[in-house]
């Protein structure tokens, strides 16, 4: 079969148009489509770890939350041990009352230092100098044992017991006590 000139021209023109159409198809239709799919897949891949992290964070918080009631109870107990108001107002009378119960009448307490406790946020440490001018050793020991058992937030840092010059049976006691109080 022999093509005439007109037919050859038509086929050549058709082939050129075909090439243009195919180029446009890949460049303007299929290309952006595949690009958009790749972007969506890439974004999805980037999102998965973030979702996993968020889920992990929520799960971790739930785990910590499960332990919280015990902690809240303990903190509540500690708060309950500390009276409201300035420690200078409540600590010396409380201490005097305590020693009076153990047969020790005269107790003087004064503040030595009042520091913020950075390890215990919300609390501060007050150091007290306690002076008991006249005390018998045995009731004093019993009172100290009771004080240590009854007041968990209190620490005796140092003490000195010195025999009295006038009465050999009586001693003078001085103590340094650290107490944890509300900020």
């Amino acid at each position: 079969m022999k093509l005439n000139k007109d037919q050859t021209q038509k086929i050549a023109l058709g082939a050129l148009m075909m090439l243009g159409v195919v180029y446009s198809y890949f460049d303007f239709l299929l290309g952006p489509l595949q690009q958009a799919r790749e972007v969506a897949n890439k974004n999805l891949d980037g999102l998965e770890p973030q979702i996993a992290t968020a889920n992990g964070q929520i799960a971790s918080a739930k785990n910590v939350e499960a332990k919280a009631p015990e902690t809240t109870k303990l903190l509540g107990q500690v708060q309950g041990m500390i009276p409201e108001g300035s420690p200078v107002a409540w600590f010396p009378p409380k201490l005097s009352e305590f020693f009076k119960k153990h047969g020790i009448d005269k107790v003087n307490a004064r503040v030595i230092s009042d520091l913020l406790e950075k390890d215990y946020p919300g609390y501060r440490r007050v150091s007290w100098g306690i002076d008991i001018p006249k005390v018998d050793f045995l009731p004093f020991s019993a009172a100290i044992a009771a004080l240590e058992n009854d007041e968990p937030l209190l620490q005796i840092q140092s003490f000195e017991l010195e025999a009295g010059r006038d009465e050999a049976q009586m001693q003078r006691a001085t103590l340094v006590i650290n107490n944890l109080v509300r900020q």
Partner: peptide, 12 residues
């Protein structure tokens, strides 16, 4: 909660 737990641990 972690701060509270840490504080409670230190206190105890």
């Amino acid at each position: 909660l972690n701060k509270q737990i840490e504080l409670a641990d230190r206190l105890s």
